[in-house]
Nucleic acid binder design. Structure first.
Lengths: 331, 331
DNA sequence: ATGAAAGCGCTAACAC
DNA sequence: GTGTTAGCGCTTTCAT
């Protein structure tokens, strides 16, 4: 910067003013400085700027894994919304979700060059992690229990899971079986609870739940079990990948979907409409969740006021495709 | 830091030494400083540290989209490898891949707080972008032509696409049709070229290529066309998502896979083994690609030496599942 | 409209 | 083993 100032014959203050687009610089001087800048290939130094201003124009994201479709969409939405405001994203994936690693990630991120943090809070393990963000650092949590210490944005898991279950019941199925996500996942728990509640309210005894781990393989294994039992005519899987695995199992055994059994997923991946048969599923608005989280965070960063503890639930929509049909009495 | 120094009754230099784990501090002093640190909740300021050292301990990633499975796996591998070395990832997604946006992303990233840049270089548009990283900033490119100005790491597209095509030929199919990725994608182009070359070397006339956009929908639309033509018995799709779309089309029309037509994809998504039928596909080692790119970059950051222009190709493996079978003469 | 001075928090270099 | 000094590149006063 001093070089530019010398080259343009002005003080470094003026260079700073030009660099930041301040108004009180004469047009002629401005041009001269701009010319010197590009001639010398000047780039402002973010570190120095951040040191002065205390702002990094970056928001930190903590995620356990990037390999689920939901996290991916959420991350993309977070990135897009942040970019719109001129912020970049600093990613700190937690390699293995053990309690030790989690607090490691936290602590590293908390001394990271970020102005705020979005936590995609998949696991109960988080509760045990000792996370103390620097005082005044805004935090928003996605996908969690509403009773954490920070504002929460989430998909309305309950509403989505109830809609899925109700859809199958309305099709005349005597009951609905559930292939759930892992025990340490909040969203999995919420979906399972809502499924059981919906069944209970309809006066139906809740069949035993099968617990998977979100993977197609776990869906496949449970599907193989379910396919043995000819009383099973309706299945709600806690995500599309497990639903896909379940469908594979039924195909292999030769039971027709949706003729013999109806299947509903959760997520609405881009691929789900091309599964065979095209999957009826609960559409999650990941983009909206990510967007809201960032907006909340940026508002707090801008105003320097803490975010009010709040819980925002983004509704889902049931997308009915070809994997569900009216129940027909088994012969 | 001054506070900590005062509180512990030492100079701020000693605090710095403790904070950075230097050895020349007496154990007793160290303990005292550590105690003061945690009592006062001291966090080192990254900006100041970066300003001094010129290092940010973060690497920048430019990607066009996070919504393809391949990019996501690559990003995860980059993040993991970087985390192992104590680096974080700064993400700057380019919202819409127009030439203007690209250079915007570049320029913003180039003044970002990063020590090096990985570009996941999907599109020909990049060639026109005026990207001048700061002098001395290491850059590695993933997924591109080998003749760019930077070292390149990529999946061996040619080898993979040839293996897919050869597999279908060896099954006795008279020819292989290709559903390609978009024209502006390097990897799509390479796969299509390899497919045509393999056919040519077998003395087979190359059938017209169908161009999709990686989406299941585009695969479905082309699949509907292909399914009309009963001479079509073997299809190589440039990714698994399009292969899924093609399969859906054949299911709808009632042509059996693999009885009537064999289909091969490219990527080997986690879901592909549960498609119906389980998809024969080319497995890409995304993790390895990401890992190598980061290793190259970190080596250059550590040594402060420019990376030698190089081209590293990570081999693929053909995974044969149930979507391909021996050709049988059409009745 | 422009410049001079001070200092953000940290660490490398050199005392002692 | 510890303290002192200086300065990284920038911006925020306060003068002019």
């Amino acid at each position: 910067m001093a070089d530019v100032a010398r080259h343009a014959g002005v003080s470094s203050q003026t260079v700073s003013r030009v660099s930041n687009g301040h108004s009180n610089v004469e047009e002629l001087t401005r041009q001269r400085v701009l010319a010197s800048m590009s001639e010398l290939g000047y780039r402002p130094n973010r570190a120095a700027r951040a040191l002065r201003s205390g702002k990094f124009r970056s928001i930190g994201v903590i995620m356990f894994t990037l390999s689920t479709a939901g996290n991916m969409s959420t991350l993309e939405a977070i990135g897009r919304e942040a970019a719109l405001a001129g912020y970049s994203i600093t990613l700190l994936p937690v390699v293995a979700p053990t309690a030790g690693d989690v607090s490691g990630a936290y602590n590293r991120l908390s001394e990271q060059a970020v102005d705020g943090i979005v936590i995609v809070y998949e696991s109960h393990l988080m509760e045990h992690a000792a996370f103390t963000p620097p005082t005044g650092m805004p935090v928003v949590v996605i996908d969690s229990n509403p009773d954490v210490a920070y504002p929460v944005v989430d998909t309305d898991q309950q509403q989505g899971a109830r809609a899925a279950t109700r859809h199958l019941l309305e099709l005349g199925h005597p009951t609905v079986h559930h292939v759930a996500g892992p025990a340490n996942s909040f969203s999995a728990t919420h979906r399972a609870e809502a499924w059981a509640a919906e069944l209970g309210e309809a006066g139906i005894r809740v069949p035993p739940m099968l617990m998977g781990d979100w993977s197609t393989d776990s869906g496949y294994r449970h599907g193989l079990d379910l396919a043995q039992n000819h009383d099973v005519t309706a299945i709600f899987a806690a995500n599309d990948q497990m639903a896909l695995g379940v469908m594979r199992a039924f195909h292999e055994v030769g039971r027709d979907i949706p003729g013999d059994v109806s299947i509903v997923g959760f997520d609405d991946l881009e691929e789900s409409s091309s599964f065979w048969p095209p999957l009826t599923t609960v559409h999650q608005n990941f983009a909206q969740v990510g967007r809201l989280a960032v907006q909340l965070l940026l508002a707090s960063i801008d105003t320097a006021e803490p975010i009010a503890r709040s819980s925002t639930l983004v509704p889902t929509t049931l997308v009915v495709r070809a994997s569900t049909a009216l129940h027909r009495a088994t012969p």
